[in-house]
Amino acid sequence: MAITFFRTALIAVAFIMSGCDNGTSVSTTEKAPATVLEGKTMGTFWRASVINLDDAQVETLRQKIQAQLDGDDQLLSTWKNDSALMRFNHSRSMTPWPVSEAMADIVTESLRIGAKTQGAMDITVGPLVNLWGFGPDKQPVKTPTQEQIDAAKARTGLKHLSVINQSGSQYLQKDLPDLYVDLSTVGEGYAADHLARLMEQEGISRYLVSVGGALFSRGMNAEGQPWRVAIQKPTDKENAVQAIVDINGHGISTSGSYRNYYELDGKRISHVIDPQTGTPIQHKMVSVTVISPTALEADGWDTGLMVLGPERAKEVVREQGLAVYMIIKEGDGFKTWMSPQFETFLVNGKN
Rank of each mutant, 00 (worst) to 15 (best):
W132C: 01
M94N: 04
S292N: 12
R87M: 05
T254K: 01
T108C: 13
D70S: 13
L53Q: 04
L158T: 08
R312D: 05
G119M: 01
I273G: 13
N221Y: 01
K233G: 11
K267D: 10
I291F: 04
R112T: 05
S257T: 14
A214I: 04
I328Y: 05
E297L: 11
G203N: 03
Y207A: 05
D178W: 07
K64I: 09
E330C: 00
E297G: 12
A67S: 02
A298I: 05
V13Y: 09
N248Q: 00
A120K: 06
G157Y: 00
V186T: 13
M199R: 08
V13M: 12
V129K: 13
S100P: 10
L158K: 02
W132P: 02
F88Q: 00
W97E: 04
Y262I: 00
R197W: 01
R197I: 04
G187W: 11
G114T: 13
K284D: 15
K116M: 11
P310Q: 00
V107T: 01
K284S: 15
M103Q: 07
K335Y: 08
T145K: 07
T35C: 13
A2V: 14
I247H: 03
V316L: 08
Y262S: 01
S91W: 02
M338K: 06
W46Q: 06
T35A: 12
V107C: 08
L69C: 12
P33I: 04
K174R: 01
A295G: 14
N239D: 15
G39A: 09
G187A: 14
R312A: 09
L308P: 10
L305V: 08
Q166M: 07
D54E: 13
W132F: 07
N221A: 01
Q66K: 03
I51F: 07
L111H: 07
D274H: 05
A240P: 02
I281K: 06
R112W: 06
M1T: 09
D21M: 10
S93K: 00
V290F: 07
G256C: 08
N351P: 14
K31D: 10
T95D: 05
Y171Q: 04
R228Y: 09
V229Y: 02
L296N: 11
H271V: 04
V286T: 15
T60I: 04
D182V: 03
V317N: 07
S339P: 15
V107L: 07
A9T: 14
I244C: 03
V50Q: 08
L61G: 07
T29R: 10
L215V: 12
D72I: 11
F345R: 02
V211M: 11
D73H: 03
Q276H: 12
L305P: 08
T303S: 06
S255C: 07
Y207I: 07
S110V: 02
S210A: 11
A2S: 12
Q66S: 13
P140Y: 06
T279I: 08
V241E: 14
G219M: 00
L179C: 02
G168P: 02
L264W: 12
V129R: 10
L158P: 05
L37S: 13
F88S: 03
S83A: 06
R62V: 06
A14Y: 03
K267P: 15
Q139M: 06
M17E: 14
V272H: 04
V36M: 15
M121S: 15
T8W: 03
